[in-house]
């Protein structure tokens, strides 16, 4: 059925992205801490986990583009709106608090974590208000 195919492709893309993230993360930590790798090789080691996360964003974007069921697509878009609102609000507020040295510094990749938390909250809100939470 046409409804299921985008969800399947999403699962594959997300799985590949998360595999890249986990493997590159473990390899990077091992090489830097155990093998004391330094120099230019640190660039790809640092970039690969980030690209894994980019892959997850890509998978969600493609899910929106490929989902032909308009109601399911709306559910995902609502989740993305919640995720973006939460992550951008948290980053903005924390940034100014940090600027005035009221809170500790947070590495920027945690805003992606905040985004995915917002994505989950969006799914929960969809479930509460529309009785459905989409496919991711």
């Amino acid at each position: 059925m046409a409804v299921a195919r985008p969800a399947r492709r999403y699962a594959i893309r997300l799985g590949v992205s998360m595999a890249l993230y986990v493997v590159s993360m473990i390899a990077g930590v091992y090489l830097v801490r155990q093998q004391h790798v330094t120099g230019p090789i640190l660039w790809p080691l640092a970039l690969l986990p980030g690209l894994g996360i980019v892959g997850a964003f890509y998978a969600i974007g493609m899910l929106i583009l490929e989902t032909t069921d308009e109601f399911l697509r709306m559910l995902i878009v609502r989740q993305v709106i919640y995720a973006s609102g939460l992550a951008m609000a948290a980053a903005s507020i924390w940034g100014f608090l940090e600027n005035f040295e009221l809170v500790a510094h947070i590495p920027a990749f945690y805003w992606a974590v905040a985004w995915f938390a917002g994505f989950g909250i969006g799914g929960f809100v969809n479930r509460l208000t529309l009785g459905a939470s989409g496919r991711c």
Binding site: V3, D69, E70, F71, L72, M74, L130, A132
Partner: peptide, 16 residues
Amino acid sequence: LDVSRQSVNAIETGKY
């Protein structure tokens, strides 16, 4: 309609 059952339910119940 080539849509999900969730879609039919949401339309039918006036949520969408």
